[in-house]
Amino acid sequence: MDRNILTDAQWAKIEPHCLGKRTDPGRSGGDNRRFIEAVLWIARTGSPWRDLPAHYGNWSTAFRRFSDWRKADVFKRIFDACSDDPDMEYAMIDATIVKVHRHGQGAKGGPQSQAIGRSKGGMTTKILALTDALGNLVRFELLPGHRFDTVGVEPLLTGISFGALLADKAFDSNSIVDNLNERGAKIVISQHPRRSRPLDIDKEIYKWRHLVENFFCKLKEFKRVAMRADKTDNSFKAMIYLAAAVINSK
């Protein structure tokens, strides 16, 4: 089976959250499964919407539909449905940088308002992700590429429980350590050489941190994510949510 095509098990989780079902009031949509697969084709290949193969339908109609679903938070609901049972024995946090294609620049309000910033790699966006103990995405934040990783940590941790937090030395800050101590969560963060009193971390548990890096590798198989081509951060988030939904439900 083509890797762009949803399995029946994945579709069973996604279908109830699609717009335009026969049971919904108002106008019915076309083939929702075909539309989701069309968005996945765009996400996987990184192609412009105009290059959408004809068997997925009219590209302009598909793009407008994507915009409507994005505004209605449908892709977030799809992600939640495919990620409904995270293993929070411990959590992992990390960040990755994606380069912004020139087609992804020029939105109203300037790049800063769309989580785009200039770093060593040029115009970039940073994806800050929190995963569960299996390496499946739980939450993420978008930051301009030049911002420090620690800036987006607080909203990722708010209102969520876990037994331990695994992270590399970029997240070794007093504020994060204090937050974890208040929660009673185990600290498994690689210690920065400048820390005057390094914490004793569980090196065996720390080895599992590779799972969050594995998640980023899977996420960047979707070329529309690996090189951002979406002008707005909301459109880019929608692509990430759908890609992560497919990854989490495999």
Results as ranks from 00 to 15, higher is better:
Thr150Cys: 06
Arg44Thr: 04
Thr61Leu: 02
Ala167Met: 11
Tyr90Cys: 15
Met1Asn: 06
Pro155Asp: 12
Pro155Met: 04
Lys223Phe: 05
Ile42Gly: 03
Leu137Arg: 14
Thr61Met: 01
Lys237Pro: 00
Met1Ser: 06
Met88Trp: 11
Lys108Gln: 08
Ile116Leu: 02
Thr45Cys: 00
Ile93Cys: 10
Ile189Leu: 03
Glu141Trp: 09
Leu199Ser: 08
Tyr241Pro: 10
Phe140Ile: 00
Phe222Lys: 06
Lys71His: 00
Tyr206Ala: 12
Glu182Cys: 09
Phe79Lys: 01
Gly145Glu: 15
Ile205Asn: 12
Ile36Thr: 02
Leu143Ile: 13
Asn179Leu: 11
Gly122Val: 12
Lys223Gly: 02
Leu165Pro: 08
Gln10Gly: 12
Ile5Val: 06
Cys82Ser: 09
Ala167Gln: 11
Val246Met: 04
Arg194Thr: 14
Thr158Gln: 09
Lys21Asp: 03
Phe222Trp: 02
Ala91Tyr: 09
Met227Gln: 02
Leu130Lys: 07
Arg50Met: 09
Arg118Trp: 11
Asp202Leu: 14
Ser113Ala: 10
Arg34Ser: 12
Arg44Ser: 07
Arg183Ala: 12
Ile97Thr: 08
Arg224Lys: 01
Asp149Val: 07
Arg195Trp: 08
Phe66Cys: 00
Arg194Ser: 15
Ile201Arg: 15
Lys99Glu: 00
Asp8His: 02
Phe162Trp: 14
Val177Asn: 04
Cys217Lys: 10
Leu40Asp: 06
Leu128Gln: 13
Arg33Phe: 01
Val39Lys: 01
His101Phe: 05
Asn58Phe: 07
Val212Leu: 05
Ile201Cys: 12
Lys223Tyr: 05
Ile5Gly: 01
Gly159Ala: 05
Ala115Tyr: 06
Tyr56His: 03
Gly122Asn: 12
Ile189Met: 03
Asp200Gly: 05
Gly117Tyr: 13
Arg65Leu: 11
Pro86Asn: 08
Asn234Glu: 08
Gln112Cys: 08
Phe162Tyr: 15
Asp178Met: 07
Thr158Arg: 06
Leu19Pro: 09
Gly122Ala: 13
Arg139Val: 04
Ile78Phe: 05
Leu211Tyr: 14
Gly110Arg: 12
Lys223Cys: 06
Phe216Ser: 10
Ala229Glu: 02
Met239Thr: 03
Pro53Gln: 10
Ser196Asn: 06
Lys21Leu: 15
Phe171Pro: 07
Glu89Tyr: 10
Ile93Glu: 09
Gly104Ala: 08
Glu221Asp: 14
Trp59Glu: 01
Ala243Glu: 04
Asp200Glu: 13
Ser83Asn: 09
Val39Ala: 03
Arg209Lys: 10
Gln10Arg: 14
Thr23Glu: 06
Gly121His: 00
Ser113Lys: 05
Val177Gln: 06
Ser83Pro: 11
Cys82Pro: 12
Gly163Asp: 09
Lys237Ser: 00
Trp59Asn: 03
Asp2Thr: 04
Thr124Tyr: 13
Asp68Val: 08
Ala9Cys: 06
Ile187Ser: 07
Leu137Glu: 05
Asp149Tyr: 04
Glu221Ser: 09
